[in-house]
Design a protein around this nucleic acid. Structure first.
Length: 365
DNA sequence: CCAATCGGCTAAGCCCGTAA
DNA sequence: TTACGGGCTTAGCCGATTGG
């Protein structure tokens, strides 16, 4: 058994950051290469999927994914979070175990098959309106809950969105239900490590808990990850006592440019909060679900990356057609002129991405 | 008729207690 | 010590309805 390669924290950090932002000219290329982009509807100042794509696609504008979704090879579904993914990934997670469909569920499915593309409101006439309690403790229409349930279990796909609202249809019945669950789980592991870059075994298995039905015992799940290392698909590196997994093809040597990036709270670079703590020495927390009075950094504080360091956060919103950005720092604000220039360039780029005119922004340092 | 209000849609992190 | 499940926490936007 070969000893595990060790890497200094500084080298590891540079490598993780350098690998996190592949540069694409076209959305379609970026999307198929990324394989998965997490969705979040909060717009402060833009949806998470748009904030993540703009860091990887040249000239990307907010809403582009939603507008071009039907032309992309894309599906929606739940991997380790809800999001947009390639058909290849969707195939692995599409079918989930389900009890026999109830009468109403079967009727809704038949209605979608008959109508083609269905907006949730499009079922009102046929099924009437009935509010039920949803996952968040709020209210939803009963038929909307059934559409989501049918989608989650592979009976429906999302064809497109109308102003953020999902429009469903019956997918082509490609097979996949009987493919080997262990092989499916292994491919989901590879996708997860591809999305995040260096990940610990614990983190990957924990993130994929929504797919535990594929391999019911934890021992099996860990063994599946282990087998990917043995087969040479994943490489191990040890950083200050923590062992990370890395896909061999993502193991690149690149330099990190002098650049400021304002990141979504769910950006793959920052989403693993444990890795975040090891790389940058502070605890980043997403506070949208924290009561307003208890928030430390803000409702939707976005991590700010400077070179290979996450040095603070930004709160941003649009008011009166102007982008307003407020920065905060964990330590001291970098003094270099380059930081100031690069920050202004990032804010200008963000306002452009939001469809605002050049210079329509204010920056509070 | 216009403005205000309401219902519905969209998303998961985090903490804590208990079990393994 | 770690894993896991339960429970708690928001806000922007849009369209329909209601009230003045």
């Amino acid at each position: 058994m070969a000893t595990i390669e060790r890497l200094a924290l500084t080298d590891f950090r540079r490598r993780v950051v350098a690998g996190a932002f592949p540069d694409f000219q076209r959305l379609a290329d970026a999307f198929s290469a990324m394989q998965f982009v997490q969705a979040d509807p909060i717009r402060s100042p833009a949806r998470a999927q748009d904030l993540m794509l703009r860091q990887r696609v040249n000239g990307y504008v907010a809403g582009e994914l939603e507008a071009t979704f039907p032309d992309l090879d894309a599906e929606e579904g739940y991997l380790f979070a809800y999001g947009f993914m390639t058909p290849e990934v969707w195939r692995e997670l599409r079918w989930r175990p389900i009890r026999k469909l109830k009468k109403l569920e079967r009727d809704v499915l038949d209605a979608v098959a008959e109508l083609g593309e269905v907006h949730p409101r499009g079922l009102d006439e046929r099924f009437g309106r009935k509010s039920v309690k949803n996952y968040w403790g709020g209210k939803s229409q009963q038929t909307k809950r059934i559409l989501e349930h049918l989608h989650h279990h592979g009976y429906l796909r999302v064809a497109r969105r109308e102003k953020g609202i999902r429009v469903y249809q019956v997918p082509e019945q490609t097979d996949g239900q009987d493919s080997d669950p262990r092989a499916r789980y292994r491919r989901l592991v590879m996708t997860t490590v591809h999305v995040f870059g260096a990940s610990t075994k614990t983190m990957v298995v924990s993130e994929l808990r929504n797919h535990n039905h594929l391999l019911p015992s934890r021992q099996e799940r860990l063994a599946a990850v282990e087998s990917l290392i043995e087969d040479g698909h994943l490489k191990e590196v040890q950083v200050a006592g923590i062992t990370y997994l890395w896909r061999r093809e993502n193991w690149l040597e690149e330099e990190v440019p002098d650049r400021v990036r304002i990141l979504a709270p769910f950006d793959p670079l920052v989403r693993d909060r444990t890795r975040f703590q090891q790389l940058w020495g502070w605890d980043y927390r997403f506070e949208a679900y924290v009561p307003a009075a208890k928030r430390v950094r803000g409702y939707y504080a976005m991590p700010v990356l400077w070179r290979d360091q996450v040095i603070g956060w930004a709160n941003a919103n649009v008011a009166d057609d102007r982008l307003k950005v407020q920065l905060g720092y964990v330590g001291k604000r970098p003094r270099e002129k380059a930081f100031r220039m690069q920050t202004e360039a990032e804010v200008e780029a963000t306002s452009k991405f939001l469809g605002l005119p050049s210079g329509a922004w204010e920056l509070a340092w």
